[in-house]
Design a protein around this nucleic acid. Structure first.
Lengths: 197, 197
DNA sequence: GGGTGGATTCTAGCAGTGCTAGACATCCTG
DNA sequence: CAGGATGTCTAGCACTGCTAGAATCCACCC
């Protein structure tokens, strides 16, 4: 009685992932506004209700895509941080990799950072991939720095601002490299503890 | 033949503004997802088609709200910049005012910076209010600085990142003041021309 | 092998969305 | 007062996310 149920669960898990990747591909090729339950169902060759047997709703599907995205982002950032050598380089490498990620997978990035999802950030129930990605920013600062998290938050926010304003055309696409350079120079080439108490 | 037409045009302009403010109020009290053409029409006590005699579509209405928002933001930032006294203070004052604006009018801010609109940024056809708001950032840097625009872009992006990540719960609401302090200290208390050629 | 029960999947539909064609009313003009 | 333009509304289209209940399938047991 067990083997057959296991096979069914396996198939079900496959279909689960199939839905996620189908949603992601559809979003990446035509944008999230094209990802409707009907088109998604057609693409996985099932009717709409099966989507709801896997996910609580569309937002849950977006969240699942985003979660995969955070996994990829974390490894992407980690590789960048580890291949950077100079004592000052890691942060710059990570930020550049971050912007690269955002511009090359705009739809995925949107799912992670601008669309409403049910992912809990900065909490005890924050999924590991999110935490891992954030940690890559934190690890760019020396452990002796007692305010690494704060530094990481600000750096992350800044590059996120660059990414999202550029993507939505509110800042010229060109000059992104120069802006990043300015930002990093300011954050890195400065004494560790700022002015105020 | 003229007086009566003028009155009609005046009434029409009134209704035009009525629609904009109604949309804004609805968005500010219940969020943009509650701003539907039906609810908006009911609120201005007209049928839906009259909305389309004033605007090309919903996006045009959002854009009109956003445009008003940029006007207010510009004056808000200007006041902050002008009342700041210390030689180092203007940028800090403007950024704080910016974050204040974003957190106190989240819906308006969304219309301006995250929802899709037909406003052209950073172009020759950029509406004056947008330009005016951006100029407030630029004017925080001395005219002798040949890269003021770049500095302004990065600063704006950074505070925008703080604003939007905080608003969407992706960064804790608390600690915003501290983050801003760190950011400003880094950008301001540093020699003018960075490293690279 | 052939029912049978339970899980699975689909059909059909609801209430809502943005938007619009065409009927209707309204009001200035000759 | 009739004519005609101007303005407004009713009704509807094609779409959205989501779901109740019918239909189907399939492992199991005798």
């Amino acid at each position: 009685m067990s083997a057959i149920h296991e096979r069914r669960e396996r198939e079900r898990a496959n279909r689960h992932q199939l839905i996620i990747t189908a949603a992601r591909e559809l979003a990446e090729t035509e944008g999230w506004e094209a990802v409707t339950t009907r088109r998604l169902a057609e693409r996985v060759e099932y009717s709409q209700p099966v989507l709801y047997s896997h996910f609580n709703g569309k937002e849950a599907i977006v969240s699942a895509v985003a979660l995969d995205g955070f996994d990829e982002l974390a490894t992407h950032l980690r590789r960048a941080r580890q291949t950077a050598t100079h004592p000052e380089q890691p942060l710059r490498a990570v930020c550049r990799a971050y912007l690269e990620f955002a511009t090359e997978r705009p739809a995925l990035y949107q799912a992670m950072f601008v669309l409403p999802t049910n992912l809990k950030f900065a909490s005890t129930e924050t999924p590991p991939p999110l935490r891992a990605a954030f940690t890559e920013f934190v690890d760019c600062f020396p452990p002796t720095n007692t305010r690494r998290e704060l530094f990481a938050e600000v750096t992350w926010s800044a590059v996120h601002g660059l990414a999202v304003l550029s993507d939505s055309g509110r800042i010229p696409q060109a000059g992104q490299e120069e802006r990043l350079d300015f930002l990093i120079t300011r954050i890195v080439d400065t004494p560790n503890e700022p002015t105020t108490p």
